[in-house]
Computed example of a mutant assay.
Amino acid sequence: MATVHKVGDSTGWTTLVPYDYAKWASSNKFHVGDSLLFNYNNKFHNVLQVDQEQFKSCNSSSPAASYTSGADSIPLKRPGTFYFLCGIPGHCQLGQKVEIKVDPGSSSA
C-alpha cells in the first residue's frame, strides 16, 4: 500500500527549528507509488527538485521542478535517488535539503 511520507514529520519543512532531514530520510523506506508531503509556510520557503551536483552545492538556479503551495504532495513514480532543497538564499546551507532514495515498490504494479 502506498505511503505518504510527511517530510520532517511534525516539524515540517523549515529552518526555524534545527532538523536533520538526512536522518529523517534514512529512517524511512521510500517505494514507487509512495508520495512526499512537504508542509511549510510558503511566504518563507519553497521546494525545488534538483540534480545531485546542485544538491551538493546548494545551487537552486535551474531546478527540474519547483513547488510553492506550502503543502506539496510529490508522487514517487520511479526508483532512483531524488534531491530536494529550499531555494530561499541560505536555507539549503542551513540544512533545508533532503535526499530521497526510492526502491522499486509493489505500490504501482
Results as ranks from 00 to 15, higher is better:
107 S>W: 11
19 Y>I: 02
104 P>S: 13
50 V>M: 05
89 P>G: 02
97 K>E: 01
58 C>Y: 08
10 S>T: 15
95 G>H: 02
87 G>H: 03
7 V>G: 01
52 Q>C: 03
53 E>F: 10
60 S>W: 11
103 D>N: 14
52 Q>H: 13
99 E>M: 15
54 Q>F: 03
71 A>T: 14
15 T>C: 04
70 G>K: 00
25 A>T: 10
53 E>W: 11
43 K>T: 15
33 G>I: 06
9 D>P: 01
3 T>S: 12
11 T>I: 15
56 K>M: 09
73 S>I: 12
60 S>I: 00
103 D>L: 10
109 A>I: 10
55 F>W: 12
17 V>A: 11
79 P>H: 11
74 I>H: 03
73 S>C: 09
51 D>H: 03
74 I>L: 11
104 P>E: 13
35 S>T: 05
100 I>A: 04
80 G>D: 08
102 V>H: 07
27 S>H: 09
74 I>Y: 03
21 Y>S: 05
34 D>M: 00
102 V>N: 06
59 N>K: 09
18 P>I: 09
104 P>F: 12
104 P>W: 14
35 S>L: 08
16 L>K: 14
84 F>R: 01
18 P>Y: 09
69 S>W: 09
100 I>H: 06
29 K>N: 13
80 G>F: 07
59 N>W: 08
20 D>Q: 04
96 Q>W: 02
62 S>Q: 15
5 H>S: 10
33 G>W: 10
73 S>V: 12
70 G>H: 02
14 T>I: 09
86 C>H: 09
42 N>W: 04
98 V>R: 06
33 G>Q: 10
99 E>I: 02
38 F>P: 05
49 Q>P: 13
79 P>T: 12
55 F>S: 00
50 V>N: 03
20 D>F: 08
71 A>R: 15
63 P>R: 06
9 D>N: 14
53 E>I: 05
37 L>G: 03
69 S>Y: 10
31 H>L: 14
49 Q>V: 02
17 V>G: 04
32 V>R: 11
8 G>K: 00
40 Y>E: 04
